[in-house]
Design a binder for these strands. Structure first.
Length: 373
DNA sequence: GAAGCGTGGAC
DNA sequence: TGTCCAAGCTT
């Protein structure tokens, strides 16, 4: 498959690793090869930029310095430490894997890629990264950087969004990766992909591996990697009800099978669904219908004076939410025995793990215009 | 195998 | 504002 001669492969390794030795990034998780450190960093780095991860990693390591600390941590503390990173199942899975490591492996890490992949949250990329960086195994670690770099070096035209394409890249990399420094090799590819061979505005003129970059030589860099287009996010519409009571704010927990699973948000009403259930509903009646539905569902007996309706937009990977925020202050504590949620005192708000949407809702709430008349 | 899952940076 | 992408994994 790969056309490179043995001589060219050797020259590439030397060129890449010499460059890496002189120019590798000084990152907090590169201070040692502790599998726990490599693991936590790799999980955080999934679909997340290095600059974003650094402060999270440093705080996380202070708070949960060992596998044991991670395994024993209360989930709300873990989620608070993960707040704002997104893909919250990552930290839940990581804790499960930590417990798995202690229970099934007596805290001793398995060192092969296949065994590592058995742990929840560790897929082919992360298993390859841990195996090569922490355990010196000659395993490929194919992330977005590796897809981009090798697709250009070797002009691989397979669509990288297809699951089966990974194997093509892994096979090629297995012939190139050096047995003596596999971890450095994989990390060098990632540093290359983050510096010269970037997705946007690459600088191949100064790239240390420009002579090996067939796509660059052929003037075809922009053609690689081949990737099918992603779908546009679907629009969704909600009302968020901010209810302040003497004992605190009302929150509802997201279901475990939906977006932002098990996180706590202001109560939301799906107004798209409301319109499906009641096709005659006009736009200016939706707000009242939403409020009435909420009061009916919760059996809260109160004369709510909702004010304002700022709209908070938030885009997830597959959905674009348009959330109209309405708020009311209840002077007397209502009967909440039929309310499926919790009342959070003001002083406890800061201990909750708020996804970015909830932060935006809170900001909009604080900025709301108080109508005096 | 396709779809679902968060967020922020860069342009 | 829109679009693409970033050290992907699970179902």
């Amino acid at each position: 498959m790969i056309k490179w001669s043995d001589k060219k492969i050797k020259e590439f390794r030397v060129t890449l690793l010499n460059w890496y030795d002189a120019n590798c990034r000084d990152l907090p998780w590169r201070q040692d090869h502790e599998p726990y450190h490599i693991w936590v960093s790799e999980i955080m780095l999934q679909q997340t930029q290095v600059a974003t991860v650094i402060p999270y990693y440093q705080r996380f390591m202070k708070q949960f310095p060992t596998i044991e600390a991670l395994a024993q941590a209360p989930e709300d503390q873990l989620l608070k430490a993960w707040e704002g990173l997104g893909y919250y199942s990552r930290v839940r899975n990581m804790q499960r894997a930590a417990q798995q490591l202690l229970a099934d492996y007596d805290g001793q890490w398995p060192q092969t890629k296949a065994e590592l992949q058995e742990l929840v949250g560790i897929g082919p990329y992360t298993a390859g990264a841990i195996a090569s960086i922490a355990f010196n195994q000659p395993e490929p670690a194919v992330d977005g950087n590796a897809f981009r770099v090798f697709s250009q070096l070797l002009e691989i035209e397979a669509d990288i969004t297809k699951p089966q394409t990974r194997g093509i890249f892994e096979e090629a990399i297995r012939r190139i990766i050096p047995a003596d420094r596999p971890g450095d090799f994989n990390q060098a590819i990632m540093d290359l992909g983050a510096s010269f061979m970037t997705a946007k505005n690459p600088d191949n003129v100064h790239s240390p591996v420009r002579e090996f970059n067939q796509a660059y030589i052929d003037g075809r860099v922009a053609e690689f990697p081949v990737r099918s287009k992603r779908l546009k996010p679907v629009d969704k519409h909600y009302f968020a009800l901010v209810l302040q009571t003497p004992k605190g704010y009302l929150f509802q927990q997201r279901a475990s099978n939906e977006l932002l699973a098990k996180l706590w948000l202001f109560p939301l009403i799906d107004t798209d669904q409301l319109k499906v259930e009641n096709p005659d509903l006009t736009d200016d009646m939706v707000i009242e219908a939403a409020e009435n539905k909420f009061l009916a569902d919760t059996e809260i007996k109160a004369d709510l004076q909702f004010v304002d309706a700022p709209i908070v937009n938030h885009t997830f990977t597959h959905q674009k939410w348009h959330v109209t925020l309405v708020s009311a202050e209840l002077q007397n504590q209502p009967d909440l025995s039929h309310f499926a949620g919790q009342v959070v005192p003001v002083e406890k708000l800061a201990t909750m793990a708020w996804p970015t949407l909830q932060k935006k809702l809170w900001t909009a709430y604080e900025k709301r215009q108080i109508k005096l008349f």
